[in-house]
Design a protein around this nucleic acid. Structure first.
Lengths: 239, 239
DNA sequence: ATCGTCATTTTGTTGCATCAAATTTCAAAT
DNA sequence: ATTTGAAATTTGATGCAACAAAATGACGAT
C-alpha cells in the first residue's frame, strides 16, 4: 500500500516470537472482503461469482481475486457447480446437520476451555455485546444483531487459546452465514438466544466450564432448530 | 491434460446431480503433491519452501505452485516465519495439545457416526489394512505402517458421511504429519495402536458406537503420549 | 567470535496476455 | 413455447515479466 507507514521490525525482546507485523497482501484483503460480504449477506446463496467480477468489484486484478476465491473454495465456503461456475452454496439440511455436529463438538470444547481463562474485563465486554444484541433486536436492526452475536461468541472462543479451533469454527460460521443472513429476519422474533447467552455469562462468572459449555450447546441447538425448520419449509415451497 | 479422454456429459438421469467429472488443475495437483510430500516426510519440520523451488520441483510455473502453498498456509500446514519465508512448522507441545483436543472431538464423533454405517466389506478392508500395519511393523517398513494406518482411520471417518469433518481431520493430520514422520522410528516399537485398532474393529462389528469412539480416542491419546514425550525430550536436548 | 552496515540476491505478489474449455446466447426447426 | 445445434462470449487456469520488500551474504570494526 503506497501510503502505509514503514513497518516496525518485529519485537523479539519478550523472549517469544511476536506476531509478524506486515502489510496485508491484496489477495488477503480480497479474501477478507469476500468473507465479510458473505457474512453480511451481500453474497447470497445461489449467487455466482467469477474471478473477473470479483476483481472489478474490489478494484484489483484477477490474481488476488482468484487467490481469494480459490481459498474460499478450499474452505468449502464457495463451491464449484461446474469447472467454470463458482457459487455461494445453498444450505441443505444435510449440510446444516453436519456443520451443527461439528460446531457442538468444537464450540463446546472452546467454551469449556475459555471458562478458566476469561478475565473480568472480558465479561464486561460480553455484557456490552449482549446489550448491543438486545438493542438490535428491539430496533429490528438485524445486521447489528448478527455482528454483535458473532463478536460475543468469538470473544469467548478466542479465550480458549485454541487458534486452530477458532479458525475452523469461523469457517463453519461462514458456511452457514449466507443462508443464515438470507433467513434471519424470519426467525429473529425469538429471543431464545438471549437467555443462552445470559447462562453462558453466568457460567463464565462462576468459572463453571460445564455450564458454559451447556449454554453454548443449547444456543447452537436452538439456532439449529430454527434454521432447519426454515430450510424444510423453504424446500417444501420450492418443490 | 493433453492426453486425457474426452469428458462425458454429467449424467442427470438418476434425478440427482452427479459429481462433476473434470480435469484436475495444475494447482490442485501441486497441492496434492505437496500434501503427499508432507505426509511422507519428504518435507520435514523447519524446511523452507519458496514458490520458485516448488515450481521447479513439480515442473510447473509459479502460479500453480503458489496456489498450492497459499492453500497450505491457509490450512495451517505451512506457516510464514516472515513475509517472504514459508516453512514447515516445528511441532510444539502447545500445538500438539490443541490438535489432539480437536482430533478427540472430531475423530471421536466420526467414529460414533461410522459405527452405524460401515458395511461388512468395510470391516474386511479394515482387517486387511490392519494386517498391512502388522507386517509393516514386523519388517520395520514404517512408511507402509503410516500409509496403512492413515487408510485405516480414514476409511472409518469417511463412513461417517461427514465430508467437512473428514477434511478438517485431514488438515489436523497434515499438521502433525511432518513431525510424526520425523519422530516415527523412535516410537514405532510400541504396538499399543494395534490393540486400539482391534477394539475399534470389534466395536464396528458389534455396532457399538461408544466402543468405537472409545477405541479411537484411546488410540489418539496413546499417540499423543508418545509424541509429547518425544517433543519434550527433543526440546530438552536442544536447550 | 560477534555485530553493524551495505551490497547483492532472492522473494512473494501482482498485472496481464493467452488459451482451451465451458457457458451462454441466438436462430431455426418443430 | 420448446428444443436443438451452432456461434459467440465468457470463463478459470496458466505462464511470465516486473517490482518493491525482505533475506542473505560479505566485509570491516571491535
Amino acid at each position: 500500500m503506497d501510503d502505509a507507514p514503514k513497518k516496525k521490525r518485529p519485537d523479539l525482546s519478550a523472549g517469544e516470537i511476536a506476531p509478524i507485523d506486515r502489510h496485508e497482501s491484496l489477495g488477503e484483503r480480497a479474501y477478507t472482503s469476500l468473507k465479510d460480504s458473505l457474512v453480511r449477506g451481500a453474497l447470497r446463496p445461489g449467487m455466482k461469482l467469477t474471478v473477473r467480477s470479483v476483481a472489478q468489484a474490489l478494484q484489483v486484478s484477477t490474481t488476488p481475486a482468484r487467490d481469494a476465491i480459490t481459498r474460499l473454495i478450499g474452505e468449502g465456503v464457495l463451491v464449484n457447480l461446474g469447472p467454470k461456475t463458482v457459487v455461494v452454496p445453498e444450505l441443505t439440511l444435510a449440510a446444516l446437520d453436519e456443520i451443527t455436529e461439528i460446531r457442538l463438538a468444537l464450540e463446546g470444547l472452546a467454551a469449556e476451555q475459555a471458562a478458566a481463562k476469561v478475565t473480568p474485563e472480558d465479561i464486561q465486554e460480553l455484557e456490552r455485546l449482549q446489550e448491543r444484541i438486545n438493542r438490535g433486536l428491539d430496533e429490528a436492526r438485524y445486521t447489528d444483531v448478527l455482528d454483535a452475536n458473532k463478536d460475543f461468541h468469538f470473544l469467548i472462543y478466542r479465550r480458549s487459546g485454541m487458534s486452530r479451533l477458532v479458525a475452523i469454527v469461523e469457517s463453519m460460521w461462514l458456511q452457514i452465514g449466507p443462508a443464515f443472513n438470507d433467513l434471519y429476519p424470519e426467525f429473529a422474533q425469538s429471543r431464545t438466544g438471549v437467555s443462552n447467552h445470559l447462562f453462558a455469562l453466568r457460567g463464565l462468572q462462576d468459572g463453571d466450564a460445564a455450564a458454559v459449555r451447556a449454554a453454548i450447546e443449547n444456543d447452537i441447538r436452538s439456532g439449529y432448530r430454527r434454521l432447519s425448520s426454515l430450510i424444510i419449509s423453504r424446500q417444501e415451497g420450492v418443490e
